[in-house]
Write a protein that binds this DNA or RNA. Structure first.
Lengths: 237, 237
DNA sequence: ACAAAAGTGTTAATTTTACACCCATGG
DNA sequence: CCATGGGTGTAAAATTAACACTTTTGT
């Protein structure tokens, strides 16, 4: 194996370290929530933070993200959604050492998904986006960035498949959009739009509500990321 | 300063290293071109690669990107455009060691901007996107990703300000779009669109061409990133 | 029959597309 | 007056936005 350049080798003891932080969102109790852990170790011991940790030498960054999430919260991103967000590299973002963190956006459906602390996490639980505690490091920035990205993605992808159960009603789906976007949508226009995009298809099944008319159940046509076919300006003349 | 956890400290000698690679695009000779360097050192000595290098302990990643670009090519990203793209972390992407690379997208206007080799670069020059040489590492993937990102950005931002001179004609601007998107656009519709977006404003100056009618000069209203005000679904009902 | 929630259609406004000729200049 | 490239408008089509009543069920 060829050696690294002499110039870089001399700085070896102060190289930046590489970590990953995961913003795992789910819809719970009609709110967008994120999993946080209570840090067991300094710095910021006792403070809430995103799950995450250092990337090991023989794993990809994606793998580190999934592993740390599982270790610290018990949550697994299986058929759900995991996407690299951004790499945060301010020099003093971690008081211990120079740590560069590759942040991830993860989505899952949150009903019945209870995190449990583990590893470096004294505790782990969901927080609604609107009532986050004070956070360690630059994790508030990371969450804000993740939320912005999620909102953009809702506009032109089907990523919501990861946040809803396999079968759902259109009012459920609309509720999910509204909760995440923080805005009310017109029911008729919403339905027309979402159906015409082809993201969802109806089942021959209906809910059995205690009150009100039963709602038809739908499913996503694909449970993998699909983009709207925008983004091709037209030719001509 | 608090210490890192014992578990992580034991892996200290094989921590991932952090580098940055820069995809610097410019429009030259009616083509989208990218700066490549010829590697002076192994691995891939003699092969073409993106400019880039390791992140030093006391600099941000953005800074490392600018510094390495300057060292290896002599090019400076001043009032231009620099954006973090994606972090590439496959375990064996660098045969020397575990190297994680934070890739950047940089844009500048390329007329009269001649790179020169330096530092670890035996040579540095522009290549048209359509005729790239064989590339070291996963740099072909990185360029492909950067190109995709640039094309998306053209659709909803004014980033082209970084790739055009301060004053330009609308045919120049259209040509730039077409070159990057790889598609022809209708002249009248293009003008209506770009003007209605408010990205550009006309000057009271005209070109003095050798042939044909003089063209009016325009400038960008803002020489900083601005997004189209899309991305807000409407409320109601 | 009432309360609750689901479902449905039409019109106006806006945006996007298609398309062809006239204008200003230099040689 | 010709060649070259710049500049312009309008109508059709598609998309988006606004908006209110009827249906189904359980009690």
């Amino acid at each position: 194996m060829p050696k690294l350049s002499a110039a870089y080798a001399t700085t070896t003891l102060q190289r930046p370290l590489v970590a990953t932080d995961i913003v795992l969102f789910a819809l719970r109790d009609d709110a967008l929530q994120v999993v946080l852990i209570r840090r067991a170790m300094p710095p910021f011991a006792g403070k809430w933070a995103l799950p995450g940790g250092f990337v090991l030498p023989d794993e990809t960054i994606d793998h580190a993200a999934k592993r740390e999430l599982a270790e610290e919260t018990g949550m697994r991103i299986a058929g759900e959604y995991l996407e690299q967000l951004y790499t945060f590299g301010e020099v003093r973002r971690d008081p211990r050492a120079r740590v560069i963190s590759v942040a991830y956006l993860a989505l899952m459906h949150g009903e019945g998904a209870e995190p449990r602390g583990g590893s470096d996490a004294a505790d782990a639980t969901w927080f609604a986006i609107g009532s986050l505690p004070q956070l360690a490091f630059d994790h508030a920035d990371i969450i804000a960035y993740a939320l912005q990205r999620l909102r953009y993605k809702l506009e032109y992808t089907n990523v919501l498949y990861a946040m809803l159960p396999e079968h759902f009603t259109l009012p459920d789906l609309q509720q999910a959009y509204e909760t995440i976007m923080g805005a009310a949508l017109d029911k008729r226009n919403f339905r027309k739009k979402i159906i015409s995009l082809g993201f969802v298809k109806p089942l021959q099944r209906w809910t059995q509500p205690e009150k009100g008319r039963p709602a038809q159940l739908w499913k996503f046509t694909k449970r993998e990321p699909v983009m709207v076919k925008t983004f091709v300006t037209k030719a001509g003349g």
